[in-house]
Structures are given as C-alpha cells and as structure tokens.
Nucleic acid binder design. Sequence first.
DNA 1: AGATTCGGCGT
DNA 2: ACGCCGAATCT
Length: 284
Amino acid sequence: MMEKKRTDCPALPPGWKKEEVIRKSGLSAGKSDVYYYSPPTLWKCNPKKDKKINNDPSGKKFRSKPQLSRYLGNSVDLGCFDFRTGKMMPGKLQKNKQRLRHDLLSLGKGGKPDLNTALPIRQTASIFKQPVTKVTSHPGNKVKTDLQRASEQPRQLFWERRLKGLRSSDITEEVLRTMDLPKGLQSVGPDSSDDTLLSAIASALHMSSAPITGQTSVAAEKNPAIWLNTSQPLCKAFAVTDEHIREQELKVYQARRSLEDALMADSLARAAENTRDLLQGKTA
DNA sequence: AGATTCGGCGT
DNA sequence: ACGCCGAATCT
C-alpha cells in the first residue's frame, strides 16, 4: 500500500490528522478527496498503563465537514473551518448569517441545525462532546451509525447550570459588564443565581425562534424533574408590559446614539490624520 | 468485514 | 464546480 501522508492539522485539536487522496482513474481522475482522522485518546490517570477509552475509537476516519462537526460537537467551532484546506478562513460566516435571518423570519424550525451552534452538551467520559441520540433497532436490520438527525435529542435537565460563570470579554480579555435583567424574572430550579438565569435566557433566545415564555407550569417549581418544560429556559413565566417595551426601546435608542457618536469621532480622527499626513507629504 | 475508491445527486 | 455520501470494488 502506498503510504498516504497524514499531516497534522493545526486548526483542529492536537492529534487530528489530515490526508488528501488523489483520484487516479475514472471520470473524476485528478480530483482529490480529503479525510481527517481523530486522535488516539489516552486516559492518563494511571501512568503505568494508559488505556484507550472505548467510546472514542482512535483514528476514526471523517469524510465530510458535517460528519466532523457532529463528532466534535460544541468543543470546536467549525464555522470558518475549510474542510478541503484544513484551515480556518475568516469570513466564512457569511452563509450562516443568511440562514439565521431566514430562520428567524420563517419561524424556521425544520432546517438543519447550524453547524456548532446547539448549546446543550452532555458530559461523558469522552473528551469530545457527542450528541445523544436514541436509536431503536429491529431484529435483522442494520443500525445506521452516525445518524443525520441531530435534532430532537434528549436534553439533560438543568444543563444551563454548566453555563454558570461564563463571561464575555473584549479582545483585550477585559471582562465585559454583564447585562442587567429586568426585575421580576425569576429562575426555576436548583440554581437561582442571576448569571445562570441570564445565560439560560440568552441561550433560549439563541437556539430557537419560538417564543420564550418561561416555565408556565406551576408544578415545575415543586417537582422540576417531572414538570419542567425543557424547551423553555429555567425561568418562571413572566409578563412583558408596555413599560418594559418602552424601557427597551430607550436602551436601543441610547445604544444607537453612542454608536453614532463613536463613529463620528472615529471618522473625524481619521480625517485629521489624513490632512496632517498630506501636509507632511506622506502617502498612504 | 473493513477499507478504499469513484460515481453521482443536490446545491 | 464541488461537497457529501452511497455503494461497487478491493484486500
């Protein structure tokens, strides 16, 4: 067998290999196929015998971006990953943006889930997060692995708690002030901290275009394990008043004002810089 | 049976 | 024109 060169792929987690195979016959001779291989995963708790963990077979072959994305789940954002070159290409988000608009307008629920934007993650022994899919097999039938249907997964109760402590930061790593939620929003469940509540609501808004109502069943407070509506955030049902809406409109207005000011200041500064350069005879 | 390879559908 | 994946072919 001709030795195929499996090269490291820096855009993926350590250990992932990329391979390009040229087609050597047929109508498509000269074209190539690109494959990726998952790294061997070793369990390092016992230095004497490192042991392979069984549910993450080493060296699994991947033949497409969707397949790779399903496997890596949320641990890697393949949004700008170019499968053919194996590199991150900034500006590949373009397609997703269009989809997002379309989704929101058309109550889109039918389409495929965007690559890597589904938040719920199940924690497993594997270092890679994998989707949880219920498979029912019938005697004599082959069970198809690697199922396409990644939607309608069972959701872990209170998965929102894992978002606790996540912070947004700007490019200098400066932590940004977190948003204030309106009073009257109350969380449901074992964790009543404000930042978990905020994460839960933000995630709910992000993940679906369905209305966010909070938990409408009163029973959910007493026995969430049974009554919790998992398609709604861990938040008591709330009412939005005209006053809330007016407050929000004011915030948007203020934000636009400060953006306008900033843009104006920036363009003035650029203009000043240009004229100064011109006076000094510099170019570009 | 599993790996390899090319065809061909859908976008 | 190309990504993705089925299935024929190979080992």
